[in-house]
Write a protein that binds this DNA or RNA. Structure first.
Lengths: 357, 357
DNA sequence: CTGAAAGCGCTTACAG
DNA sequence: CTGAAAGCGCTTACAG
């Protein structure tokens, strides 16, 4: 079947208006019988305007449907109420949820949000992204869960208001000039690993998400190996890495071959989905023969069969916190939100169980 | 387990620069020994500039690191190279993919993209969204897959350059003033229904996504019932509706009770996920006892067990087409893309089979 | 409390 | 080919 779609309209292209049809501050002034400066005062809620005058102006504003030009305002004050988010991805669960949190917080605060996805991590890609963000004029938010994000975060020019959602704090303190927010993935992964160990598994294998620093390991992988070491269990070699179910499936195929593998902790739920599928194809049942655990608690995790045990992360909250980190720079006197703690919660469902006898 | 997260930085809030630190057109002019108008010509690639002059200016631009202020430019020309997308959701597969397509196309064309999610469909919500979009200054793109989207699409003021990705063309021709793009969901759903019927099912049940028009049916539901009618099969009553797995699960629980139900076509893959899960819980195996089919072919569909039969829709392409529909209004002389056809493809996997004997 | 002036950084006719 | 002037729509001191 191949059903084709459609495009309609644009028959008579609406004339691209050279000038905004809008009514300006001067039109309002004329209508209200005052100078346009007074109009400016009124719309900026200056206290020094006679009540009577204010009302006349407001009435004119209403009647004429005046809307202040955001760009003229921005040019005059030298700042725009905009944040632009730089991210390597918009559809993976963690990224999409963080973005959602940012957008929510921004909207609630009256900020517009721009979005730009990163093409890669090459110097020219990074330069283009930084330039775009700078051009936009407002603050910058980077979702730095991967190398591309990390690269632009580091390349941001000094003085540019910015904040980031990161995988983990940099190993080396970087002066802490700019706000960064994160969830303690590492501790969460260690906890998940301990949970699996407590179930009776001799060790736990790990399919990782790529690290955001070249040559490093993801904090989740770090927490996993650390927990293993602390428990005196052997730390298996890497079992593949990636972001999506296809990557998980590939890793799972390898893992399925080794009967010694009885538990695998995945760097995210999509990876886990692929691993579970591979196990199924190899005739190894989950959790009877192998336990598989995810990370993130994406919306579908609870509905899989077996329902996926995982670690729930509140990315939307992380996104909101990130926005507020930026807001303190953009508007130092804005009421700063009391940030709720960013928590990670172990969710036990059906995909994990004691190892086969 | 409750691992808390962190916020760091912002110790010494970088002084919010009242004025852009940047170098202006006049700085460049001074450095190059020309008037600033000439600089303007050079950066706008005006043909009437002496080669020698151009080079001097370009050198100064380079040396000083000049970047033209987007907002000043916008104010002067009365237009910004920005599109803002209005959408009711950013995380559901269809929406997120459409958004991705839009962003890609916009980035490739040098347009910035703003995003604003719709709070609801009440008059005040609609007004706020429209106002925001208007304020932004550029063109508007609405993802009108739901009622909120449809409502703002209809509320857009005349003269505002806009385009939409819709579920289906309006029943009534609306003059076709503005470009709209869509995939023929209805035909695709009919095809899927016929496929199920051809497998031997006496009829097919349907768990729908909400219609984008009040009191109407989604095109997918329309295609389904039409195919049933044409085949002379009975058209079952509604089996619930919604967007996500939770909704699908609820509908699936009802459906599972009725032994006459042997095939269910879902309005999207998340719904199907929930239905499959409900069937599993009720002890009805898929596809031996019931066939269930999704819609969209989201990334996880292929990795479920059983792998989900579905209809693949190219939302990213739809998003790109939508952007180009807007572009023809924003920049009438831009090279208009040859739009590849928007196709829907039936994907047969493991969740569908002939009915039990 | 309110007006007149200057400026934000750029573009667009208009002269020359 | 290049400069001087005016303007985009608003804000910000400065007078009064």
């Amino acid at each position: 079947m191949d059903v084709t779609g459609h495009t309609q309209g644009s028959g008579a292209p609406t004339q691209p208006p050279r000038r905004r049809a809008g009514v300006s501050i001067r039109d309002v002034a004329r209508a209200a019988g005052v100078s346009y400066q007074t109009v400016s005062r009124v719309i900026n809620e200056s206290p020094s305007v006679a009540p009577h005058t204010r009302e006349r102006v407001l009435a004119a504003v209403e009647r004429l449907g005046f809307r202040r030009s955001a760009t003229a305002h921005a040019l005059a004050v030298g700042q725009v109420r905009t944040v632009t988010v730089l991210t390597g991805n918009t559809t993976l669960y963690g990224y999409a949820s963080t973005l959602r949190g940012i957008e929510q917080a921004a909207r609630a605060t009256g900020y517009a949000v721009g979005i730009r996805v990163l093409e890669g991590e090459s110097p020219s890609d990074v330069r283009a992204a930084v330039q775009h963000a700078t051009d936009a004029g407002g603050g910058v938010l980077v979702i730095a869960y991967d190398r591309a994000g990390q690269a632009v975060w580091e390349a941001l020019p000094e003085g540019l208001p910015a904040a980031a959602a990161v995988e983990a704090p940099a190993e080396v303190a970087d002066g802490g000039a700019r706000p960064r927010v994160w969830i303690d993935d590492r501790a969460a992964a260690a906890e998940a690993t301990r949970y699996l160990l407590a179930l009776g598994h001799r060790t736990v294998h790990h399919v990782a998400i790529p690290a955001s620093v070249r040559g490093g390991s993801s904090p989740r992988a770090l927490g996993w190996s650390q927990a293993l070491r602390e428990a005196g269990a052997v730390v298996p070699g890497p079992a593949g890495e990636g972001w999506d179910a296809t990557d998980g499936h590939r890793a799972g195929r390898e893992l399925a071959r080794d009967p010694a593998v009885t538990a695998v902790l995945c760097g995210n739920d999509d990876l886990a989905l692929g691993v579970v599928r591979a196990m199924h194809e190899a005739g190894r049942s989950v959790p009877a023969s192998v336990s598989v655990m995810g990370f993130d608690d994406a919306p579908h995790a609870a509905f899989l069969t077996p329902a996926l045990s995982t670690v729930r992360l509140d990315f939307a909250q992380l996104g909101r916190a990130c926005f507020h980190g930026l807001l303190t720079q953009l508007a130092p006197d804005a009421p700063s939100e009391e940030a709720p703690p960013l928590t990670a919660t172990l969710v036990r469902r059906e995909s994990t169980a004691p190892p086969p006898p």
